[in-house]
Amino acid sequence: MLLPLAWGSLFFPGLFGLCTWGLRRARPAWTYNDCVMISTRLVSSVQAVLATGSGIIIIRSCSNVVTDRHWLAREYVWFLIPYMVYDSYAMYLCEWYRAGDQSSRQPLTIFRNFLSKNRLMITHHVVILCVLVPVAQLKQQHTLLYKVNGILTLTTFFFCRILLFPFMYWSYGQQQGLSLLQVPSRIPFYCNVANAFLVAPQIYWFSLLCKKAARLFSAPSAKKDG
């Protein structure tokens, strides 16, 4: 637990500092704000690649992704915690440099703007750090808190990762005066193909979450006591 936590605390801020320093040397004409913005995106991309790679390793190593356990799934959570803290600071840093010259910066105003513009992402990070991680580490799968957490996960996943796609089609239809069913035939074919490739794994992962939830809620009472 402590080792991946320590590595994450060194890796993400260190990578951010290294990227910023490298960009300042490689692109001296760029402003510090530009270097900071690009560095935060590079670190986020690296984290996304690491998370995706970890997921692929876990899936390929488990014969049953619903019931099996893999050490990487547990350890990567602790490696991810420092990233959430770093990312919150990096977002605030970007907002600070976007505010303009040092003389015109009002810390309280900048902080309010930061909270206003990033409230969804901040809520996401806080919930993961303060709710999802502790609940997942408790391993008390038959407690009410664990079940509530599972329901929230299913709900947010369904609305934010699956219904997002028909919502995009519906929004485009509203702008163009089309019905939802007319939109696929009125947009470029490659857009439909790209969306299909994007939504397919989301549906697959959602089905796995549903299977896990069904197994959890249908568990016999004997297991609950154990």
Rank of each mutant, 00 (worst) to 15 (best):
C130M: 12
R74V: 15
L5W: 06
P107N: 11
L18T: 02
M84H: 15
S185D: 08
W7Y: 12
I38Q: 05
T67M: 14
A99T: 08
N195R: 00
V183A: 01
A99M: 08
W21E: 11
F159D: 12
M168I: 07
F217M: 07
V85T: 07
Y76R: 11
A136E: 12
I59G: 11
T153G: 14
Q47T: 09
K147V: 10
R74M: 15
A48Q: 09
P4E: 12
Q137A: 13
V85L: 09
Q141G: 15
A219Q: 00
H142A: 07
M1Y: 13
G8M: 04
R215W: 08
S61W: 05
F79Q: 14
L23N: 02
Q137D: 14
K147L: 11
V199R: 01
Q106P: 03
M37P: 01
L2M: 11
G22F: 00
L180R: 03
R25T: 02
F11M: 05
Y146T: 02
H70Q: 15
W30C: 01
G226P: 02
P166Q: 03
W205N: 11
S116G: 13
I38T: 06
I203S: 08
A194E: 09
T40P: 02
V65W: 04
G8V: 01
V127M: 05
L152G: 15
V193Q: 01
Q182V: 03
G150A: 13
Y83F: 15
D225G: 01
S185I: 01
F11I: 01
K117E: 10
Q106I: 10
T31W: 00
V183M: 01
D34G: 00
F197P: 02
V148T: 10
W170M: 03
Y169C: 02
R74G: 14
L80V: 04
A222M: 03
S116I: 10
R25H: 03
D87S: 09
R215M: 10
Y76I: 09
W96A: 05
V126N: 13
L23H: 02
K224D: 07
S9C: 05
R105W: 05
S88L: 15
F114S: 04
L163I: 04
G55M: 07
N118F: 11
P82V: 03
S39E: 01
S54A: 15
S179T: 15
W170R: 08
D225E: 05
M37E: 13
V85K: 02
A6W: 07
V131Q: 05
F167K: 14
L198M: 12
D101Q: 10
I162V: 09
C94K: 13
L138W: 14
F159H: 14
C94M: 13
P134T: 02
S39G: 00
P201G: 10
C35F: 00
G53Y: 06
A194Y: 10
S45R: 11
V66P: 11
P184F: 05
Y86S: 00
M84L: 15
M1N: 14
M121K: 13
A213G: 06
L18C: 02
R119T: 12
V183F: 02
S171P: 06
V36K: 03
P134G: 06
F11H: 05
P107I: 07
F16A: 03
K117W: 04
I56A: 07
R27N: 04
L138K: 12
S61C: 07
I128P: 05
N195D: 04
A48D: 09
G55K: 06
V127A: 10
W78T: 12
M1Q: 13
